[in-house]
Design a protein around this nucleic acid. Structure first.
Lengths: 167, 167
DNA sequence: TTGCGTGCAAAAGGTTTGCATAAAT
DNA sequence: ATTTATGCAAACCTTTTGCACGCAA
């Protein structure tokens, strides 16, 4: 181990909250109660979630730390912009996932139980870059979704049916 | 060539129309003017398209072969079901593409001019199947979208700006 | 005190549905 | 004669926006 690696390896020297506060300060924007409440909830336990699932976990209207739906949308967009979350679409809804220290990854989507299984593949990134190079295309990102049935749903009927996607 | 390959290799022995008519007959459903009009328009020249772009090419309300928007949505869903089209989402909108004799393919999406560039990669399919196998996942399909800037948009400003996606 | 941020209500945008009528079988 | 399909209008669902008020700096 080289001397500087001691610094590199400090595990979580910058928390999401700190990173977001820096983001706000850099832009002269304000550190409000609502932003803190949403951030706290998002980074408490979620992996990926949609807006409705997030709202279920937040205080309801009338309660102490209520955050309105428009503000939630606005705040999540800021988190994406600040690099804390990534956003994608699934069945006509926006889905967010943590982007905090994670390496990029992609998903297997089970059509039986609607669960998302993450995987990471360097080979995929290499393949992506090779394809892009062939087309003189400058890559900023990618999204791969493999659809099918997870191991659980292959044996036995579907379980944990969640919500019917629209499409 | 074996004798039966003569049959297999007849290039386009089943047109989209014929395939769709079979699909309808099999289900005891009706071969209507509207279904024929939409099918004809879809398979005339389009590669991928969204509903609004399709409607632009169809007769307007009041004209001879007008097809209403709900019927267009219903008909496109049938085409997908019949295996003639594939559907995916891009920026909150449904996008359809021909699935008629095509091999599966994926897309580069240019954020400058909103164009979709197709590519086909066996290596990707192999990689997909390998990943799935590792997770004991049964694949039914996949969708890879590589985002970035096409060659044209890298040199010079963006051109052909179409419509702002919502997300 | 100076705006940025919030909640509310309403709009927007894309897609779906209920229903009476029209058309295919 | 039946029964499916269509067009219209309206509903739906998710997300965004206008605006007056409230709160952070």
């Amino acid at each position: 181990m080289s001397p500087e690696s001691a610094l590199d390896h400090v595990p979580v020297s910058v928390t999401p909250l700190e990173q977001f506060e820096q983001y706000l300060r850099r832009r002269g924007r304000r550190n409000t109660v609502q932003r803190r409440v949403v951030l706290d909830c998002v980074f408490r336990a979620h992996d990926h979630f949609d807006v409705d699932r997030l709202i279920e976990k937040l205080p309801r209207r009338g309660q102490p730390k209520y955050v309105s739906r428009p503000t939630i949308y606005r705040t999540l967009a800021e988190f994406v912009d600040a690099g804390l979350l990534r956003k994608f679409e699934l069945g006509g809804r926006a889905v967010y996932e943590l982007n905090y220290g994670y390496p990029d990854h992609d998903h297997l989507y089970c059509q039986g139980c609607q669960s998302l299984i993450e995987f990471q593949s360097d080979a995929l990134v290499a393949l992506r870059d090779a394809v892009a190079a062939q087309h003189r295309f400058r890559v900023t990102g990618h999204r791969l979704m493999i659809t099918g049935l997870c191991a659980e749903c292959q044996s036995g009927a579907r379980r944990r049916p969640r919500r019917q996607p629209r499409s």
